[in-house]
């Protein structure tokens, strides 16, 4: 449960940081990775922070945990692919830009962090019963029991 909440806080911080500043800052980060066509860069810059925020809130509250964890796994896998291709192509990126300007890490560190986060998320998904401890999912499934 603690791991779940910490992971949720990380996603809320990451999404929230991007949403509280003009989206153009995140668009610049995406452009630097040189992987998406312009229209997709624009859409990703506007949509991705919202997905991060919502997934983070759902993780903290323990809502739709199975689907949320799947979403988080896909998202981190996406980050891994994007950062990985930047590393392979040796793009001149000093920092990942993943948490806005407040916390930013060099690409190899980001790649390593993403692998750790993916492993943690996969573990949470496998141990879903324990992950769901003290969650809204558990609360609703209890109210689901016939009296």
């Amino acid at each position: 449960m603690i791991l779940r909440i910490l992971l949720g806080l990380l996603f809320v911080a990451s999404g929230g940081e991007k949403l509280l500043f003009p989206y153009q800052n995140f668009l610049y980060v995406i452009q630097n990775y040189q992987i998406l066509p312009p229209f997709a860069e624009e859409s990703a810059a506007r949509v991705m922070p919202w997905i991060e925020l919502i997934l983070g809130v759902f993780l903290i509250l323990g809502l739709w945990l199975e689907w949320t964890l799947r979403g988080v796994l896909i998202m981190i896998l996406g980050f891994l692919l994007i950062v990985g291709q930047a590393l392979i192509r040796r793009l001149p990126l000093e920092e990942c830009g993943c948490f806005g300007s407040r916390w930013s890490f060099p690409l190899p560190v980001t790649f390593l962090m993403d692998i750790i986060l993916w492993t943690i998320t996969a573990y949470l998904r496998i141990r879903i019963e324990r992950t769901a401890f003290f969650s809204l999912d558990r609360y609703f499934s209890k109210t689901n029991q016939p009296l």
């Binding site: 809502l63 809204l136 609703f140 499934s141 109210t143 689901n144 029991q145 016939p146 009296l147």
Partner: peptide
């Protein structure tokens, strides 16, 4: 009905 209610609430 309780199950339906719970899903609706969720």
């Amino acid at each position: 009905p309780p199950a339906k209610n719970a899903i609706q609430k969720k």
